[in-house]
Design a protein around this nucleic acid. Structure first.
Lengths: 211, 211, 211, 211
DNA sequence: AATGAATGAGCCTTCATTCAT
DNA sequence: GATGAATGAAGGCTCATTCAT
């Protein structure tokens, strides 16, 4: 009964339970924030007992961490996939903006949660996140470096690329997520994608076909 | 609101006491966040009694709200002052970026606090903030509208201006505030100011003097 | 009850499983006490499932009771054996002290557990213990009564014999078990045995100045 | 209002509250033991709120520790007073037994509590207890050393004195406290006092046939 | 205005026990 | 017999807030 070989994928029921808890937690966190969500809130939303929560996740923080890490990885994987499907610098830069925009709209609650800053991750989780971030950033920069080398993109301080490319769309999305802006990010996607490319494209050729 | 000069001089006066409490609260909020700060933390940091805190601010939320509103007003006033000292579109746009950058670096803890999203403001405070925001945005757009009308700046959806101008610097600052970036925003100020202007400048004339 | 020899051979047999659980429980109780030991602790130490524990012992208290009763019976049987191998009053009294000392040193964890006072036994277990104690005390007093009758031992209130004979060694052992004393009880065995005999021996010979 | 000079003896009401909590805790611990006593039990018995308990003692362990330390100090002080009122070796030894007996009977619940072994003291409390014990044992041995030097008491391994003198009465008291013996320790006080003296008195006079 | 003891609702977590597989 | 996910009552503790002094 249940092979000993894999502790992290026990039986079908277990995985389903875990997923439903994460889903419930996401709903709560999005509605009232991590600190204002109680274990009981999650438990009621997930239709399970307190004990079950602790059996699977160990603590409230444990749930938050797993949800966060899962979310980040989902985003990162999607982004890298899009990137690798692009064939040149311009397409790549624009793909970043478009994906950011699309993913956020399609995963609004998760996106909102990933923006929160009030969670005290355990040292272990923090280490894990750092590693995930490192791998991601390495892959992304690995992708763009050749474009810069070939002059298709400007040479800039390393820390400037992300803010220049993603800053505007992120700022817009942030305000949209908190309800300050009504209009869906999707309707401004092209605008921000163009702006991103303009901000980082190489300076050699006349930018004729931009709009 | 309470001159900045007496932060470290807890005289017996009411105003001084209030200022020292706000200062103490800011320290706590910055260190561990609003939810993880207790009334006792603030009280100890401010060298006053619990009762005194309640006498002056009514509640924990009251402190957070006052601190937040004071901070926003301080920022807005400074920004408008800088704006009004600019003489054309380009200078204005760049002034926004520069001020955002400078103010953040000079008021790092306060800036960090203003970025937090985990405070449940009272209806009253929310209304107040909305009004402040409305006034501010009205003043800012009032300033820029003529430039757009004259073609010195692009015509864009209203919600796009702020993200395009402030998005990159804000994104950079956010990462710097949370410790992900080392380099002071000040060293990238010019870069982001130029980028902001390029993103919103009118398209008529050749952009010669760009760098 | 389960031969001592198979403690480290968790064969599939029921008896072996029971023994390994009792052994595991003893380790836990000794380390952190009954109340601070969880079923999970025992289960992990015994390499078995929670369900198995309950299948065999019914409850946490059930384990503690069985362990306690087994221990007491083991001690009592050993003591009576030693007593019956003695041929006179002096030897008998000294045998009590010696056995107490030897058994404790040889069964340190069990001895430590038998000294604990924080277990709420079931009525049934309490009755069982009372009966065991009654039988034991009857046998012991049955053994010593003739010596007292013959004047080889002092006539004392019934309750005074045990404290006078075992009190010192027990006190020493208690402190040794809790780590206050370093020196093994064995090295003081002869001293306490002599003292015990002096405390209860008949007054016929020599020792006039007793008052 | 309340002088700043002494934090540990705030105002009359505070001391009274603290005392009543300790008293309530003692009642509970004696009745059902430390682990089976809940904060609510103490709170109800002391007629105060949960918060008040924590305001004054910090934790359940904190209450237990303070009660324990207060008890030990009360006992030690009484013992040393009695000792110093004795004028020779015999009187001193017997005073130890008598005081032990009297104090236990007069402070039965406290005595019972001091015998319990199931409390996890904090490192700080443990250090405090160790120091208290060290001081006490130093004072006691300081008192008896001259008698041994003068030959009025036997020369024995240092660890043997306490068990020989106090062992029997302690053993009796322990059983009496747990309800196994009915007869008050007081009625056997003289008997155990004599036995104690016989066990440690010098060998100069008469008592030749010791082994 | 200041003080800090008192209050108690509510939180996170533990853990003995059950039971479907 | 064995397994371990599920259960939920109960526990220790926190902390914003009140109020008598």
């Amino acid at each position: 009964m249940t092979r000993r070989s894999d502790r992290s994928l026990p039986r079908a029921g277990t995985a389903a339970r875990r997923a439903s808890v994460l889903q419930a937690a996401l709903v709560c966190f999005t509605e009232v924030g991590f600190d204002n969500t109680t274990i009981q809130d999650i438990q009621r939303e997930a239709h399970c007992s307190v004990g079950s929560l602790y059996h699977h996740f160990g603590s409230k923080d444990g749930i938050a961490e797993e949800l966060f890490i899962d979310g980040i990885e989902h985003f990162n994987q999607g982004m890298l996939r899009k990137l690798k499907a692009s064939s040149n610098a311009e397409e790549s830069v624009k793909a970043v903006v478009r994906f950011y925009c699309d993913w956020t709209v399609r995963n609004r609650p998760l996106a909102s949660y990933l923006h929160s800053r009030d969670i005290d991750f355990s040292d272990q989780a923090r280490a894990r996140l750092k590693e995930i971030y490192r791998e991601y950033i390495t892959a992304v920069f690995g992708w763009f470096t050749p474009f810069v080398a070939r002059g298709e993109m400007r040479v800039l301080p390393r820390e400037a690329y992300v803010p220049l490319i993603s800053g505007p769309i992120q700022e817009y999305v942030r305000r949209w997520l908190s309800g300050h802006y009504e209009r869906s990010p999707v309707s401004l996607k092209a605008l921000f994608a163009d702006a991103a490319w303009n901000a980082v494209k190489g300076e050699s050729r006349g930018d004729t076909a931009e709009r």
